[in-house]
Simulated scan of single mutants.
Amino acid sequence: GYYGQFGGAYIPELLYANVEDLRKQYLQMIETPDFQKEFSSLLKDYVGRPTPLYYAARLSERFKTNIYLKREDLNHTGAHKVNNTIGQILLAKRLGKKRIIAETGAGQHGVATATVCALMGLECIVYMGAVDIKRQAPNVLRMQMLGAKVIPAGSGSQTLKDATNEAIRDWINNPEDTFYIIGSVVGPHPYPDMVARFQSVISEEIKKQLKEKTGSENPDRVIACVGGGSNAAGAFYHYLDKEEVKLYAVEAAGKGIDSGYSAATSVLGSEGIIHGSKTLLMQTEDGQVVEPHSISAGLDYPGIGPLHAFLIKTGRAKVVTIEDQEALQASLLLSRLEGIIPALESAHAIAALEKIEFSSQETVVVNLSGRGDKDLDTYMNYLKEYGNDHHTS
């Protein structure tokens, strides 16, 4: 359960049996032909995979290189999150659990969890920070439409960290019948490994699709945004031991790295324990969690998955930090150049293109993790403030 010094399972005694049960069984369950068949068939016929790998000609021209977008925004529910919730709901069913809980920031994981619970006829409770409930209203409505109960987390900064705290509290109180579907590569082992495996379908497809398009299955660079880091884990997975493929983890710098309003964990964080695993964490000298900030609800987390902590610490992945304004500009750039409105999270990955030096021969894959419907309010306010012509030239 460790990536170097990061990972493990630091959990209350009451959850030990649950987590241990899952740890002992998850690999055997995932690898059975029966599981694989059901998982693959749902990804294909329900989620709509494989998602396209799209050559973005105008974006490529702009950055003088060859840019491909992995279109996770075209999945059913609008993001990569559903790859993982399908996998976990199949495990929950096989473990005989009747009640599903989840945490969500941007609401995409909540929607994906509510979706698979409706599909399988299981009770669904989603914890979401009160601040995020306001800024991601369309996703709250979608969850309710799907039959989920959305419970606001009113403590702390009332965002993703606090929603996770509440979900863990619920799990401690209901260990027998409840399965916690964690939405990212965070939490106690085996969650980071399990979520990465379910998301690895992203890089599995990229390899095949690139081979068809370019003759080589390896790009020169893979770029993905990182909050907890599940979309990045999926995009990096099959390239982890291919040193020639450069990996870029894009973090939210909020109002600036040193502004006190940031979520750039790998730059500002130090080793600590959050939500059941040892990782990099924004904390004070006495170990209190520092409240993160990002305009994007999905990147607004004070920690990072242990896999990413390891990749960054060992230098295997490079970090790019993007401020709120830069992400907003990038979202307009992609919308105006390619006719694709990205989620604010994915806009951070697009913004990283401005900060990397490319050669004209390179193949660059950006994981476009989600679509922008849920962020239209934020985008509208930005357009009002900056006018319609901002940053598209």
Rank of each mutant, 00 (worst) to 15 (best):
G4D: 00
Q5F: 02
Q5W: 01
F6P: 13
G8P: 06
I11H: 03
N18E: 11
R23G: 12
Y26W: 15
M29D: 09
M29C: 03
Q36K: 15
F39M: 14
S40P: 01
K44N: 11
D45F: 13
G48F: 05
P50H: 02
A57W: 01
L59E: 01
L59H: 07
R62K: 15
T65N: 07
N66Q: 09
I67G: 10
Y68K: 03
R71E: 07
R71N: 02
H76G: 12
H76E: 13
G78N: 08
A79N: 05
V82M: 07
N84S: 12
N84V: 10
I86G: 08
L95T: 01
G96F: 07
K98L: 12
I100L: 00
I101L: 00
I101W: 00
T104G: 01
A106D: 13
G107E: 11
G107S: 10
V116A: 02
V116E: 03
M120S: 12
G121Q: 02
L122T: 00
I125Q: 00
Y127K: 01
G129R: 06
V131Q: 02
D132E: 13
Q144E: 15
K149C: 03
P152F: 02
S155L: 04
S157T: 07
Q158M: 15
T159V: 06
L160C: 03
K161Y: 02
T164Q: 00
A167Y: 01
D177P: 00
F179G: 01
F179S: 00
I181T: 00
I182D: 00
G183W: 00
S184T: 14
S184V: 05
S184A: 14
V186C: 13
G187R: 03
P188S: 11
D193C: 08
D193P: 01
F198Y: 14
V201D: 04
S203H: 14
K213E: 09
E217P: 15
D220F: 10
V222I: 15
G227V: 13
G228K: 09
N231L: 07
Y239L: 05
K246I: 09
S259V: 12
S259C: 08
G260W: 11
T265F: 06
S266I: 05
V267L: 15
V267N: 05
S270T: 10
I273R: 09
G276C: 03
K278S: 05
L280T: 08
Q283P: 09
Q288G: 07
H293E: 11
S294K: 14
A297N: 12
L299P: 13
L299S: 14
G303R: 04
I304Y: 12
A309D: 13
F310A: 13
I312W: 05
K313S: 14
A317M: 02
A317R: 03
A317P: 06
E323T: 11
E326M: 04
A327N: 10
Q329T: 10
L333T: 07
R336P: 02
E338L: 08
I340E: 11
I340A: 08
I341K: 05
P342A: 09
P342K: 08
E354I: 05
I356D: 04
E357F: 01
S359T: 15
T363W: 05
V364A: 10
V366F: 01
V366C: 06
N367T: 07
L368N: 01
D373I: 07
K374N: 10
D377E: 14
M380Q: 08
L383N: 06
L383I: 15
K384E: 09
K384Q: 11
Y386P: 00
T392G: 14
T392E: 07
